[in-house]
Design a binder for these strands. Structure first.
Lengths: 340, 340
DNA sequence: CTGAAAGCGCTAACAA
DNA sequence: TTGTTAGCGCTTTCAG
């Protein structure tokens, strides 16, 4: 069942040495006479030979394969970044595969092991790990996707979360909300997520609003988290007077919360304003539609590919950081409130 | 930058032969004395050695890597299948990566090339290709995901479309609908889609209902198709007396039709019943929510993994086909009608 | 239980 | 332009 003919059979069949065959099948541009070339090509076709790129890679240290490692493949945010990167990378001759970690360190470790053992020429990753030294030790070019403004010495691309968060909060403020809550995760990469939180706190201070710890919700950025958020909110004593808007850490969370709230008779965009972050496709199809801040997925994916290519080309170039601004998507889940 | 220590350095450092080191790091269960084991382990740790599984694979013909090839990674339907397969496969020690083809033969070809050159121990694929012979020639265990009831001699898993369609139609019948229309596509994989249509015709015959060609709609399974469907329906003379329910080929189509109809003042779940197929996440968030038949993504992914594992274990076992029934998701787009 | 030797399939010097 | 000779890093007989 497994392929068995190697260049040695091809060489025999074509009446040349295996080096000549190698010169034909490799891209290395060794010169071959037209005559020999023809014979080799014929032999390849006759025998149905296919190159074992694994063996080739062992020798040449080139696998032509790139891994895009994402935390949640079912989240369109990540899969679209992966696809954008794929477009760019394939144009350069690389094949792209994506690894799904489900935010699990154990799964990340699996992919890192593969990388360490030379399976990929490079990786685009969003990792829960903050251990940049470990990443460098892998000996594989890596570009980080995320909002880790604090990490140094590694190529990074992402959305400027601080600006995106401000954009959302300012919009809520402008539309008249004054008791703005926030729902984010502390899960995994704490430092990273606390950006939203820190920005939130800074924003309140700036506006002279006293922070209310009761409307700062810690939930997972998932459907489950959305239901948790709804539950926590409704459990809050006299919540209607305590909170008029909630900025959610991502769209999935916001949409799930919206659903759960409706089941309890609370309508987003009416009884309370809900805002997301990401702008996943579903955000435009919910009832009400979700007001959110869009992250430029295509730009992020393309930029990640670009940086990776540059890094592969020159491992010693200085590391670069590319942050893109978010875009406000005004839809139906935020009401215009009139301040009394 | 690249890793450099190989078993030969480890061997030297531990004062043993590289064979002994190999016995330690391989799973092949060669026996090593406790004393030697200890020295080798120490050396590995000292030197920070990591095994090059690529080289190992070259010799052992095992890569411990599986590719799940899907047509659209941003569609949760596919990514959830991929994730379910991953769960099962990783438990057996394989690493799973997913390839995205965007329905493009050129991208499929890339992944097939990788497979042919021995990069993966197996694949789970949904391919636009119908060339089973080619797939076998790759020399890699493959499981197909899809509803291709017509393909033979290859492991297949998918939803039983006939049963799913019947489930939908029976539900519409039970809820009192008697003038049931259908909207499916004749594009692309014709054979497959005509399943729905054939089942529909059989169903009508069984119930003794005369078929009405005017309420059989041929549209794309897309947003565009949904708008077309709405337009065609409304253009029908006296449609309210001619059709009381429409079974749509998939959810995307149904949701788009629902939106377009509402714009024309026709409310699904009130003026007409609409039913979908798939149960995509958005189906639960529309207004009204979409009654549909869910395809069991998790089961499909798990079964695909199961079949692949079996095939890897025994390449000569007879091929198997596993079809799962759909699950009725009763929501808001179908009314209970009372028969007079 | 251990070491020596022979590859897995390919590429990369080096001569010729 | 070609063939020869070494490996890439690991596994796998086969002796001992």
């Amino acid at each position: 069942m497994k392929p068995k003919i190697s260049i040695i059979e091809v060489a025999r069949h074509a009446g040349v040495s295996k080096s000549t065959v190698s010169r034909v099948i490799a891209d290395s541009g060794g010169s071959v006479s037209p005559h020999a070339l023809e014979k080799v090509l014929a032999a390849i076709k006759d025998l149905g030979y296919t190159k074992n790129t694994l063996a080739a890679g062992l020798r040449s240290q080139k696998t032509w394969m790139i891994l895009v490692m994402v935390p949640d493949i079912t989240n369109p945010y990540w899969s679209e970044i992966a696809r954008a990167a794929q477009d760019r990378l394939e144009a350069e001759g690389f094949s792209v595969v994506v690894g799904n970690t489900d935010w699990l360190e154990s799964r990340e470790a699996r992919y890192f092991d593969l990388a360490r053992s030379g399976r990929f020429d490079g990786m685009v990753i969003n990792s829960v790990t903050n251990d940049i030294a470990m990443i460098h030790r892998m000996g594989v070019p890596v570009v980080l996707v995320g909002e880790r403004a604090e990490v140094q010495n590694i190529d990074t691309v992402g959305t400027d979360t601080i600006m995106a968060t401000r954009l959302a909060l300012e919009y809520l403020w402008t539309t008249g909300h004054r008791r703005i809550g926030i729902a984010t995760s502390e899960h995994g990469s704490e430092r990273f997520l606390s950006f939203r939180r820190r920005t939130y706190e800074g924003f309140l201070a700036e506006k002279g609003v006293a922070p209310d710890p009761g409307i700062v919700f810690s939930v997972k950025l998932s459907d489950e988290g959305g239901r948790d958020l709804a539950r926590s909110l409704l459990a809050l004593h006299d919540w209607r007077s305590r909170v008029d808007a909630i900025f959610c850490g991502n769209d999935i969370l916001a949409i799930a919360a919206m659903d759960a709230l409706r089941e309890a008779g609370v309508e987003a965009g009416k009884d309370i304003s809900l805002m997301g972050l990401d702008d996943i496709p579903a955000a435009a199809n919910t009832r009400p539609t979700l007001t959110t801040v869009r992250k430029p997925r295509a730009l992020i994916g393309a930029a990640a590919a670009e940086l990776l290519l540059a890094r592969i080309g020159d491992p010693d170039r200085p590391s670069e950081k590319r942050l893109f601004p978010g875009e406000l998507m005004v839809r139906g889940s935020v009401t215009e409130r009139h301040i009394i």
